[in-house]
């Protein structure tokens, strides 16, 4: 038994040494993490975009914290919930943090998903790597040309959907705030499937990331009607943003969802994380984001960067927590509508 262990471990060590020659690992900064290993949990697939962002940031977080290594561990499952459940019970010593889509987690929790064992508002938020505006589009040939048309529609607005992701819930909240009838058709498989359904007219429109719609809008296959963002998008100054057109008591809810979406690809740690670790990590993530080398590499990989610091992200959580009670019934109703 012992010899076997030794052989395997020895073999593993030799190979691991050859593999893990991390560039620029020393260049210590704050001292808290000197020579330590930070585990970065990414609850998404190893080949996916989220992991690529994590791999981009990892070496730079190590560089600016002075840590020996940022070890990325994929714990995929349950739409990010599985890995996040795991983080929830980790020691808050700053050695284990996570990186994933924050709105997905908050919405999974608010909608009452049985799998959620965490409280997303209690995590310590460390910074954001990227986010991008989401936009509501309709088919190019659709009679609907503006968000006003949607509100005046005499029938439900049909939305082909891939399932209960953040776009699903966001649209439900918008429908409630803007007071239009919404019929979400679930069962589509992936973006191509929902996109074609909207273009051919099986569905009216959908909500998606801005970059995804660029060729479709340019081509006339889709037409933007609303930006889900704090302001209008510079490329389409005539398209209103959701926050402009919602008035009254519903505004807090829309503000909350805008805040959530703004937190998109974010780093966070377990609740009550060591303040020293929190400060060191927030600092390191901000510095990493400002590093021209990281920016150049991100651009080369086609990874859009839109960083934001940990304090800003933490402040968003407060607003979301305040407004979330009002959102719960809307989210539950949306879920019930597809049962």
């Amino acid at each position: 038994m012992k010899t076997i262990w030794k052989t395997t471990i020895l073999g593993a060590l030799v190979l691991a040494l050859a593999a893990f020659a991390v560039p620029g690992a020393s260049q210590a900064a704050s001292g808290f993490y000197d020579g330590k290993v930070i585990t970065l949990i990414v609850p998404n697939s190893p080949g996916g975009r989220m992991t690529r962002y994590a791999r981009l940031y990892g070496p730079y977080i190590a560089k600016y914290t002075g840590a020996k290594e940022v070890r990325i561990v994929n714990k995929k499952g349950g739409g990010g919930v599985k890995g996040t459940n795991y983080l929830w019970v980790q020691k808050p010593d700053g050695m284990t943090i996570a990186f994933t889509s924050v709105p997905t987690l908050i919405l999974a929790q608010l909608s009452g998903s049985e799998a959620v064992q965490f409280d997303a508002t209690k995590f310590v938020y460390l910074g954001r790597a990227a986010t991008e505006p989401r936009v509501m589009v309709v088919g190019g040939k659709n009679e609907i040309r503006s968000i006003e048309d949607v509100r005046n529609l005499k029938r439900p607005f049909i939305n082909p959907s891939q399932g209960t992701d953040e776009d699903f819930y966001t649209l439900a909240i918008l429908a409630d705030a803007l007071d239009f009838d919404l019929k979400i058709v679930t069962g589509y498989e992936g973006q191509a499937d929902t996109g074609v359904a909207v273009i051919k007219g099986d569905g009216d429109g959908l909500l998606t990331a801005w970059t995804y719609t660029i060729p479709l809008i340019a081509n006339g296959d889709m037409h933007p009607i609303l930006t889900i963002w704090t302001e209008r998008h510079p490329d389409y100054p005539d398209i209103p943003s959701a926050l402009e057109i919602v008035e009254g008591e519903k505004k807090a809810g829309v503000q909350a969802i805008v805040n959530m979406l703004a937190m998109h690809r974010g780093f966070f740690g377990p609740p009550d994380m060591d303040p020293k670790a929190t400060a060191a990590l927030r600092d390191a993530i901000s510095k990493a984001a400002a590093d021209p080398e990281l920016q150049a590499e991100g651009e080369k990989q086609g990874l859009i960067l839109l960083p934001s610091d940990g304090e800003t992200e933490q402040a968003r959580i407060t607003q979301i927590t305040d407004a979330s009670q009002g959102l719960k019934p809307v989210l539950k109703a949306a879920l019930a509508s597809i049962k």
Partner: peptide
């Protein structure tokens, strides 16, 4: 349409984006 047909195509399109070609009918 400019929609990536699947996960594998989405990865390939990164190559286009990085050289400034917008994937799509154009």
């Amino acid at each position: 349409f400019g929609i990536p047909g699947g996960e594998s195509m989405a990865i390939l399109l990164i190559a286009f984006v990085s050289m400034g070609v917008t994937p799509g009918p154009q």
